[in-house]
Design a protein around this nucleic acid. Sequence first.
RNA 1: GUGGCUGUAGCUCAAUGGCAGAGCACUUGACUGUGGAUCAAGGGGUUGUGGGUUCGACCCCCAUCAGCCACCCCA
Length: 421
Amino acid sequence: MKNLIPPVKGARDFYPEEKAIHGWLYQKLKNVSASFGYQEYDGPFLERIDLYAAKSGEELVKEQAFVLQDRGGDLLALRPELTPSLVRMVAQRQNQLVYPLRWWSFGPFWRYERPQKGRTREFFQWNIDMIGVDSTEADAELIAVCVAFLRSVGLSSDQVVLRVNDRRLMDSELNTIGISGEQKKAAFKLIDRSDKLPQKEWETFASELGFTTQQISGIQAILNDTTLWKKSPSLVRVFDSLKALRADDFVRFDAHIIRGLDYYTGTVFEASDLDGGRAILGGGHYDNLVEDVGGDPLPGVGFAMGDVMITIVLEKYGLLPEPKSFTRAGLMTVFDENALQDALRLSAIVRDAGIEMVCYPAVAKLQKQFKYADRIGVRFVLVQGPDEKAEGKVSVKDLANATQQTVAEAELIGFLQQLLK
RNA sequence: GUGGCUGUAGCUCAAUGGCAGAGCACUUGACUGUGGAUCAAGGGGUUGUGGGUUCGACCCCCAUCAGCCACCCCA
C-alpha cells in the first residue's frame, strides 16, 4: 500500500458507483439531444496544437493545454475543448453536409488547471451545436434544449436559472454611453465582475480601468434595467419562441451575462445554481467560426456543459439516482468440490434464459457465499447440495423476503421468471 | 501563478510534550446446508516524507511532498 503509485493530479477514477452515475447522465443528455433531432459525433482526443493556437492564442495553449510531442517532432495537444475540432470537421466536408446541422457529443477533455471544487484536469463535456442557420429561432431551440435537460434531471427553476443576454444589445447600449472600440473589452470584463465584487471595490476597479464616473453609472443603469431586452428585437423573438416551445421556465433576461469567449456575436446564455452561483453550462451564437479555420463563413449556436459541476449540483439537491449497484439477478452457490461443474451448468442454463447470473467462482462456506450475495445485491440465491442433486432439484432463496423453495431443474426457469416479475 | 486549511489503521476521526485509540469495515467463531441483526475473539500503524528542538515529539520549529478550499483564469 505504501508504494502505490499516486494517480495523476486532477485525473479521475470511476469506481462502479460513479461510473453508473456517469452513465445515467450520459443517457439523460443523449435522450434530450435525440429528442430535438441532434446526431451524436466525436472528434479525436489528440489534435495538432496549431488548431488551438490559431484561435485561442499562444498563452492559453502553453499554460492550459496538455502538450506532447510525437516521434516526428510535431506538437500535439490533448483536446482542451471541442469547438475547434467541430469546426475543422465541418470545414473539411463543408459542401457535403446537410444544413442546418445538428450535432452533439459527450467525451473527455483536459486542461492543465489547479484542481478545486467543480474543476478537475480531466473532465467530460457535453457539446451541442446547430450550424448553418442564422436565426433567433435556432438560438431559442438551443436554450430549449438546456431547459429540457434541466427538467429531465429533475431540477426546478427554484434551484437553477438560465440567464440570457445578447451581445449586440450590450454593444449598442455601451455605444450610447460613449464606450466603444478598445474600451468595450474592458467594459465586458467589468460587467463580468459586477456580481463578484462588492459595490465599492467594483467602482474602484472600474475607475482603474479608466472609466469616467458617468460611464460607470451608465453601466450600472444598463445592468439594473430588467426590461432592457425589449430594446432588442432578437431577444424579444427569442423569448417569444421559448414561450411557443413551452420552455420559458428557468429562463430570465440578465444583462450581466457576457461569456468569456470572443467568438460569441449574438445571443449568449448561461445556467447556474441559484444557491452558489457557479456556472453549470454556457453557450451562445457565433457568426463565423468556420471561416476562422479556412472554410466559408457559417453561423451557428451551441453550448457546452461539464460533467463535474452538474453532478455536484444534482448531488446537492438529492437528484442523483440511487446507486442500486447492478442488475445482476442471482447468485449460484458452490456447495462443495463435487458441485462445481453443476454450479457452472446451472448458472449457464439460467443465463441462457436471459436472467443475469453470477456464479460463485470457488468452493467456500455457504455462509460466506450468502453474505457475498447480500453484499453485491442480487435478488435470489441458488443452492444445489447432495439432497437436491439426488432428486434433480434446486433450492431457490429469495433474499428480498427470506423465503426458500425447492423446485425441479426443469421448472427452474419458469419459477425464476415468476419470482423476478 | 497567489493564499488558507489538512495529512494518524482499509474508511471516518480521537489522542494539545509522557505506554498510539474508537467506531465502521475485515477475518474467525457462537451457527458441522443459508445473507442483513446480535455477541465474542482476532488481524491490522516507521502518525505523508526528511531534518531540527527536547530527557522524551502524532503534538513544537524548518523544509518537502500530497490532498482539499478560495483567488486568478475559464477556450
